[in-house]
Design a protein around this nucleic acid. Sequence first.
DNA 1: ATATAGTTTAAACATTTGATTAAAACATTT
DNA 2: AAATGTTTTAATCAAATGTTTAAACTATAT
Lengths: 206, 206
Amino acid sequence: MLSVSSTEEKIKEAARKIFLQKGFEGATTRDISREAGLNCALMNYYFRSKEKLFASVFEEMLHLFFQGMITVLNKPISLKEKIIELIDHDFQTFKRNPSLCIFVLNELHRNPDQLINIIQSAKTQTALLFELQLKEAIDKGVVRPVKMQHVLSLLLSNTQFIFLGKAITMSTWQMDEEAFDTYAEDHKQLITQMIINFLFIPETAS
Amino acid sequence: MLSVSSTEEKIKEAARKIFLQKGFEGATTRDISREAGLNCALMNYYFRSKEKLFASVFEEMLHLFFQGMITVLNKPISLKEKIIELIDHDFQTFKRNPSLCIFVLNELHRNPDQLINIIQSAKTQTALLFELQLKEAIDKGVVRPVKMQHVLSLLLSNTQFIFLGKAITMSTWQMDEEAFDTYAEDHKQLITQMIINFLFIPETAS
DNA sequence: ATATAGTTTAAACATTTGATTAAAACATTT
DNA sequence: AAATGTTTTAATCAAATGTTTAAACTATAT
């Protein structure tokens, strides 16, 4: 029992990097073992196959992808605070992991059947709280009548897309990493304001 | 010269389908020739290699991806009309080609260097007109002061993302194709209103 | 130190992959 | 009909891929 978990973690780390970079089909087992600096047979010693190793990485990424959102949706805070925090959290997550978004969406697109049940179980249940809060606010006339699906789409679209199109954006507008960060931060403020403005009905001066 | 363009077009058509479905790495030449119902050597007879065939398909898709936007940006119509039409056009395009978006963004992510120059030349020049129009409106106080990049990001994010996440959306909310269409149409109305509301400053009653 | 269990290695395996070949089938011109 | 150039086919190639094997190495317990 020399370096069990160390080696296993090295493989996992290399797999994360290579899979996120090249996708499942684009990454080869030799790519991964080279990145890890290990013999390629070890990959199958610790994980039984390329598919199993990938599944392990993918589940991790799916967790990262959704967990933040779920946590925030469950927080005991006001709807407005929740929306602001949701946007903020997603920006942080995707700034830290720029490839995460395209990776998850892409693998999901190529492999919908096997993966969809993982998401479904995690997601639907936790949206109920948020939905209640939203309906309440709509009933009170504080929020414009919209379905929750649309609200979540608004949030996800606007936070995720700038990171999805990072490569295009940077090249089109000739940005370096720093310029992109500034741009992303500006955009965050902008969409927060836009979404809040849109959803919340301004109090009528009585 | 029996069926030259017919065979070539069959290959192209099959390549479009398979590449959009599985990406460059995921698609095999035999997949494509099987889909086309042709001998696999023909692929290299008409297109010299898998890469060349892919490049041909990819350029087509890139064109589809950007051309509509560019055309609308150049139209001699008002800013507000332009934004409405831009959203409408993109919704049509991506509804017709649901995989287009994820395909382009994904290949762009895996292969940034070679492809970025194609985009740049096509995009930057044509955005100038729109930028002028936007600045003029901002000077007149009709439009909130925002950089064009943010405006375009808003438009692209909100139109493209629901098609990017189509698989997730459909499974999460248990939608069939028809339900998704309704949802997409509703969402289009919603984001059009939201973006217009946000950008255009309401006239102050004098 | 020796045996035992766990870990790592180099080499090889069977398939699959993109690509090529040389011959056959086809159409067109003479 | 013969000749010619074009298109299609089956068979094959070398390289790459995921995986397996059997031996070597390491650490720990007896």
